[in-house]
């Protein structure tokens, strides 16, 4: 299937806007996870602005697809997408991590419109997504459950428990995505605790595996569409990404995992992003 060029350019524009929103919110918060928010932007954009069926005016719509951010530290990217979709005002992104804010440091279902599953402690999102998928199956609901995980998160044992469960229960209403940016807090994933070969591991657990460039909308959307038609087993998209993507001096820099941009860095980053036409 060919993805229309005007759709791609529209999504590229949205992604750029989300990056700007994320960087502003993080700089304003003075703390947070920049690198892993930026690496996930295209994935989240493809989901919220193209693939997922959802309705910000009616968040509880029965037939909606659901999203779980298992790598909860990517919250700024998710919040920016939710705000731009209309779940809450864009200005509210400036309250990120502030006292009395609805936008907690990590996703919290009881405060943030559009967030249905809380996260922050790594390794737990896929199990919860599986529970949602089983619930949907019992109710005959057609909505799909999307869950975004980090590559460092693959080191959590519970991920593999959940991978086994989804395979065992043949949860074809699950589509998991790995934001495979190669870095974790202490360094390169391959040096800290190697998680590869991810594709072989997930296949061995009974999953249909797709590998894409996680910053390429055509590839992402094709894989998401292909995942929708997989029957009898869950799907995994391994999205090859760059940590800190979109801001030259942040790309592939491990120190931006858990650091917000300073006001000077924000200025430089915005100049780069806003300079793109």
């Amino acid at each position: 299937m060919i993805i229309a060029p005007d759709l791609i350019s529209k999504l590229d524009k949205t992604a750029r806007q989300l990056r700007i929103d994320v960087l502003k919110a993080l700089a304003n918060a003075g703390s947070g996870h920049t690198g892993g928010s930026l690496s996930a932007i295209e994935i989240i954009t493809a989901l919220y602005f193209n693939k997922m069926r959802h309705n910000p005016q009616n968040p509880q719509w029965e037939e909606r697809d659901m999203f779980v951010l298992s790598k909860g530290h990517g919250a700024p990217a998710w919040y920016a997408a939710l705000a731009r979709c209309g779940y809450f005002p864009v200005e509210e992104l400036q309250n990120l991590r502030k006292i009395d804010s609805r936008l907690q440091g990590h996703p919290y279902s009881r405060t943030t419109p559009g967030v249905e599953v809380s996260s922050g402690s790594l390794g737990q999102g896929l199990s919860i997504a599986n529970g949602l998928a089983l619930s949907h199956r019992l109710d005959g609901k057609t909505g799909k459950i999307y869950v975004l995980m980090g590559d460092g998160e693959m080191q959590e044992g519970q991920i593999w428990e959940a991978a086994m469960s989804a395979g065992h229960y043949k949860l074809d209403n699950i589509c998991a995505i790995i934001d495979n940016n190669g870095l974790q807090i202490d360094g390169a994933v391959c040096n800290i605790m190697n998680v590869e070969p991810l594709d072989e591991k997930w296949r061995a657990f009974g999953w249909q595996v797709f590998k894409v460039n996680g910053h390429n909308f055509a590839e992402l959307i094709q894989a998401l569409n292909a995942a929708s038609s997989v029957k009898g087993k869950p799907s995994l998209i391994i999205a090859q990404t760059v940590k800190g993507k979109g801001v030259s001096f942040m790309e592939n820099k491990v120190q931006y995992h858990g650091m917000a941009p300073t006001s000077q860095e924000l200025e430089r980053a915005l100049a780069e992003l806003e300079g793109i036409n």
Binding site: V117, Q158, A162
Partner: peptide, 27 residues
């Protein structure tokens, strides 16, 4: 149909139960 054996995996069981509850079940 409404019983799920999760195998010897208590952490996954708790997470799955949470997902079922978010989906409207009483696990």
């Amino acid at each position: 149909q409404r019983f799920f054996n999760m195998g010897v995996a208590e952490q996954d069981m708790v997470g799955t139960a949470a997902g079922l509850a978010i989906g409207g079940k009483i696990p």
